[in-house]
Design a protein around this nucleic acid. Sequence first.
DNA 1: GAGCACTGC
Length: 647
Amino acid sequence: MSYKYWNLSLFVMEYAATIVVGETGSGKSTQIPQYLKEAGWADGGRLIGCTQPRRLAVQTVASRVAEVGMKLGEEVGYTIQFEDQTNPGMTMIKFLTDGVLIREMMEDPLLTKYSVIMVDEAHERSISTDMLLGLLKMIQRRRPELRLIISSATIEARSMSTFFNIRRKNSLLGSSDDLPNPEPAILSVEGKGYTVEIHYVEEPVSDYLRAAVNTVLLIHEKESPGDILVFLTGQDDIDAAVKLLNEEIQHLGRHYLDLLILPLYSGLPRGDQDLIFAPTSKGKRKVVLSTNIAETSLTLEGVVYVVDSGFSRQKCYNPISDIESLVVTPISKASARQRAGRAGRVRPGKCFRLYTEEYYLNEMQSEGIPEMQRSNLVSCIIQLKALGIDNILGFDWPASPSPEAMIRALEVLFSLGILDEDAKLTVPIGFQVAEIPLDPMISKMILSANDFGCSDEILTIASFLSVQAVWVSVRGVKKEFDEAKLRFAAAEGDHVTFLNIYKGFHQSGKSSQWCYKNFLNFQALKKVVEIRGQLLRIVKGFGIPLKSCDRDMQAVRKAIIAGSFANACHLEEYSQNGMYKTIRTSQEVYIHPSSVLFRVNPKWVVYQSLVSTDKHYMRNVIAIEPSWLTEAAPHFYQFRTPNPALH
DNA sequence: GAGCACTGC
């Protein structure tokens, strides 16, 4: 084991919080927990916890630690949703996602089993990481013996340090001799990446797609062997660039046929993603055109050149309209450095930025906006409420969301009957919703299913709503794909269509062949089954029996409305293009082309979520009767300005 | 009329 961290245990002994700054890949996440174990932090049955933002990272880091003499599932273990590889009483080092650790707080609010918790990749500032940081700071006030290690790739560590500085003027903690220093320590560790030479464009480019294609061709012409990774913003960008590149290759001839062009984004079917990880055959050069997925979630070996467009798609939230949208946004310097670092994993590399050095130095933001400040907060707030944190506005957030966003979330939870007038969780609905690991609207739908005698159906629907990419679209067979979809399509809408798919999948004996034939994503359907199992265990715990309504789809739709009544829309009669308006805010919306109700355009619909790009598209849509709205949510619809469309 | 950055419980 490396002694790079020889002084870490001294820091952890002495300071309440230690901030470790070092690039990803410096071995922090594997070495620090082992070092803490040797220093005795797991003695006496205590746990050393280490959180990661992603499931895959939890699994890989845990197995890497297991390689050096500890058994996975015994001394070292991990917990992610659907999988617990720990052994209580035996496990000393536990890796887990930050979301799982927050869930553990519901059972054990002070996380008493842990002596040290390391939060890895804190610079990513995901909602759950930020929530966890706020909660850990709070726990430390009650449990000063708990030690924290915050691991970050950027020097934003300084603001982390301010956040964790818990020195107070009139400390009530008594003598400070046996207590840790409340001011965080900062420790820097060297990354083990190779140097990456940065190149900028001389003049700003007007068309980054064209510029990216030209840069790839130039690299192939002038530079030594090594794969190329290009960062673009989304699937359409990537598909367009693949097409452009292939056209150029045809024109340019022989030498360029050595280029192997591959797209990469999360929606890609499994088999296509595997191609990307296959080693490049001799004499070939791989060119991977990717979304942000290759920035953090996936690591490609063999990349020596990175082409950075300087843009990514980012979530952005408007609390007034309560709409989240995806907007192409300039990336931050931290992101640009992370992208460049992807070129230096196997040997020194080069990064070609499609923006000027002047722009990088003077205009690019140094850090991105934390996700917490770009999101709808309903899930986050219900979890804090369940942990007994009542003063949401006064919570000590690492990055405080706007008061408007917090108030909007409180309003939504109130309208669903999850919070009462004093903004306390209702009994039992509110507490039950908090326990279900889904969007509160979907959780509310599950609980209401009991009233309509259709819990069986609703559990299936809720599970489908939690997986993306139920369908696999294969290029070139659009007709067959559309026909397959029609076989399951239900006149009521997408939710009922999911029931038909689930039934078919079940009858096929959960066959992957059957999925393949029907253009369905086998991995996704397996996940549906898994989620459904977890949900069933939870609702049984509430005393809700599994009950089917057989073919009464009206009951199913009423249960859906009990959660999503706020998403009701009405077709604009005189619109020729399928325009709907939301009842609540008269927002212009359209049925998403992936919906079975696309082009069907029923008069009244309720949608599950909005995908907002250039237009607002409703995803997962169901046809309803307007009278069901007032029935389901009189408080929401009755006292509003009379809407002539309703009568 | 025509589309989905990325995670997670």
